[in-house]
């Protein structure tokens, strides 16, 4: 490990340089969001605000952002809980039912879903949602989002369930446990980290999702945060500090979650993708 650790100064400088490139815009977003409009035009862009103000934040909050926030929470939770649940069931079936041609076929279908760009099916999804009379509702965003989350979730979860030693299943089965019982008392606790990772990863995607809300909703009452950001920017594009305050406010909940669960997310993603 010592050898690996002192590997290459070149990678080190690339990492530090890129960190700078990552941090500069983030720093600029935060400092600018506390400046008033005149300070934004007169001050050095990187200077700290001389008279920090919360006007921008007040303006964003008064533009109905709390409502959009609630919408985003409903859509995200409403997608992730069922999506992870049914993906876990499917992954369990695929691992435990290895040898079944039906399950192998289903698994192949899910894997194919990984190679298909989501946007490409948006027009028939739109038609489907209209025909189901769900257009312009939060459910319209939730249903396709669940479906789109399945392929990757099943892939990651099957990898994890496969790691559970077969002997454990066998000994439980000999003791008379049902598949449902083994799923609950064996597979679930052992794959909990993977479940959390899959939930966070998909949650990020849904929380930040733009295309489905753009196409499947219309009225301000059903707006989610990314869409609200975009319309807010359209209205106040001249007021850069206010626009940036809206960026901070929509990202803040995720940053807080990240601060709490970063270890889980980073290690889980690493394990999930690097195999």
């Amino acid at each position: 490990m010592r050898k690996l650790a002192r590997l290459n100064w070149f990678g080190g400088s690339a990492a530090w340089l890129w960190l700078l490139i990552v941090m500069v815009p983030l720093y600029w977003i935060v400092v600018t969001s506390f400046k008033d409009e005149s300070a934004y035009f007169s001050q050095n862009p990187f200077a700290l605000p001389t008279a920090p103000t919360l006007t921008n934040y007040r303006m964003v909050i008064e533009s109905d952002f709390p409502r959009y926030f609630v919408n985003s929470v409903i859509v995200t939770a409403g997608t992730i809980i069922p999506a992870v649940g049914i993906s876990f069931l499917a992954a369990y079936a695929i691992v435990r039912g290895a040898g079944s041609r039906f399950l192998a076929g289903v698994n192949g279908l899910f894997l194919m879903g990984l190679a298909i760009p989501l946007q490409a099916t948006i027009i028939p999804v739109y038609l489907l949602i209209i025909r189901m009379r769900l257009y312009d509702s939060l459910l319209a965003i939730v249903l396709p989002s669940i479906a789109f989350a399945i392929p990757l979730s099943v892939l990651v979860l099957t990898n994890f369930i496969r790691d559970v030693p077969k002997e454990l299943f066998e000994s439980m089965r000999v003791d008379g446990a049902t598949e449902w019982g083994m799923l609950r008392t064996l597979a679930f606790p052992l794959t909990r980290p993977a479940l959390v990772t899959v939930a966070i990863y998909n949650g990020l995607g849904v929380w930040n999702g733009f295309l489905l809300p753009l196409i499947l909703t219309q009225s301000p009452e059903q707006r989610t945060l990314p869409l609200a950001l975009w319309t807010f920017q359209g209205q106040y594009s001249i007021n850069v500090p206010a626009v940036l305050a809206s960026v901070v406010l929509t990202t803040l909940p995720i940053v807080i979650l990240y601060a709490v669960g970063r270890r889980q997310l980073l290690s889980g993603l690493t394990a999930g993708f690097s195999r």
Binding site: L26, L204, L227, T251, I254, Y258
Partner: peptide
């Protein structure tokens, strides 16, 4: 990894 958290719109 902070850029991972921001939406493309943001």
């Amino acid at each position: 990894f902070v850029p991972l958290l921001l939406s493309s719109a943001a």
